[in-house]
Design a protein around this nucleic acid. Structure first.
Lengths: 248, 248
DNA sequence: GAGTGGTCTAGACCACAGA
DNA sequence: CTGTGGTCTAGACCACTCG
């Protein structure tokens, strides 16, 4: 094995990962060993790892080795699933769960709620700073893949939303509908790729060099009142999206 | 000046760039000079530059120095502008032009056309391999910011679309409408972040480590026939998008 | 030819995980 | 404690641009 540049080494490892020689969840050989295999310095292997890390294929961890984290992207199709199991607005992530289990992996989540003032942009949309926040963090196995916060005006948020437990059977949207705030339109704003904040990097367990995607979902009633804002942040390579709309 | 880590050096330069101390288009001090300023090795400055490059703030060029390429993201709002000047489907990039000129920069574009077989995914959508392709490359100043290819079935493509010149006054959509193929719905599929192909990296003048966003736009008639597919590829940090849709 | 960034090496020290 | 990845240095050579 005589690869010479960090790109070639990265390409070689990338190929072995997608070919399944190093399956997701497994640990790569240590850098000194790879350095010997490719007959290069460890610095170079480390640089190749940085490339694969930025692409989301691996997660190097000091003291523990480099774990393979490759996952196929999750398709975000809000319009198609909006009623039953919309991910950004609702909380019934049945689709997410099913998709992950199909890969033989285990989905998990953490949920926490609090009353707090939302960031200014969200407060402006909801026209209040008096909000209920639902924070979620989704995992695949032990790998965090998404953090999101949903904001609701306290004045309209039913008690059920305050409980830090998953909401099944139609999700948050149906709970709000039962409370008299059915949603009929939604708007989504996407930042395709930006550096994570320090907190996001910590919560997603990624380095500050890994780009994230931010999706802001706004759920509105037929009168145009915004009743829910959800901000989701994901490592950028984990998402694809599909939208459909009519042309006047 | 005594910054110590590559992240701190990158943060420092990033701040100076967004503050306008190094305006877009200007050239940063050479790496040896920055190394002296921060009292670190050139290797470290080089690594900090790699971070800024991945974020899209700078473009290092061997022999020529490191150029500042910071630009605010361009907002992609297909639903809002679909009629007059849709960027993905139409070709009237009036909005693009206006936005750039507001920044005091000069937009440019290259256009080429050919008859060719589209990639399999596109052929499937259009239900033919007999297509007209319009290739575009957009620049801001001397900086390529987008490459895109629009595919039309040869059987329905008016002669005007074969000419490698910009199409004003309503764009490609209105040309197709005049030919009897008015579009009433559109679907867009987004890959938020992926490594560029070698050709994309070459045409966008970016390193293979810079992620790109791919937006596939499908324009359909009211009968659901796809009459136009446009695939756009942009450096990932140059885009934000906004979609609006109704919830059944 | 002088100066630029691109890459690689050899070695060093560090923080951290786990036995 | 050993082994892991994270970082930094000093120096080298290269390919490239420009005068």
């Amino acid at each position: 094995m005589e690869r010479r540049t960090f790109r070639e080494i990265a390409a070689d490892l990338r190929q072995e990962i997608v070919d399944g020689e190093y399956p997701t969840g497994s640990t790569l050989p240590p850098e000194p060993e790879l350095a010997e295999k490719y007959r290069v310095s460890r610095s170079l292997v480390n640089r190749a790892m940085a490339v694969l890390h930025a692409e989301g294929l691996v997660r190097p961890q000091r003291g523990r080795g480099t774990q393979v984290t490759w996952l196929p992207p999750i398709l975000h199709t809000p319009a198609r699933y909006s009623q039953a199991s919309h991910e950004g607005g609702g909380e019934a992530f049945a689709a997410f769960t099913a998709e992950i289990k199909d890969l033989g992996l285990e989905p998990r989540h953490e949920i926490g709620t609090e009353e707090a003032a939302p960031p200014p942009g969200v407060a402006e949309i909801l026209e209040t700073t008096d909000c209920l926040a639902r924070h979620r963090r989704l995992f695949i196995g032990d790998l965090p893949v998404r953090v999101s916060t949903s904001w609701f005006p306290t004045s309209i948020a039913p008690a059920r939303l305050r409980e830090p437990v998953p909401i099944r059977a139609g999700g948050v949207k149906s709970v709000l509908a039962s409370a008299g705030y059915p949603q009929s339109r939604a708007r989504e704003r996407i930042i395709m790729s930006r550096p994570p904040t320090d907190e996001e990097a910590y919560r997603l367990e990624i380095s500050p060099e890994r780009a994230v995607t931010e999706i802001t979902h706004i759920g509105m009633t037929s009168e145009g009142r915004a009743v829910e804002v959800t901000v989701s942040v994901l490592p950028a390579h984990y998402v694809e999206a599909e939208y459909e709309y009519s042309i006047d």
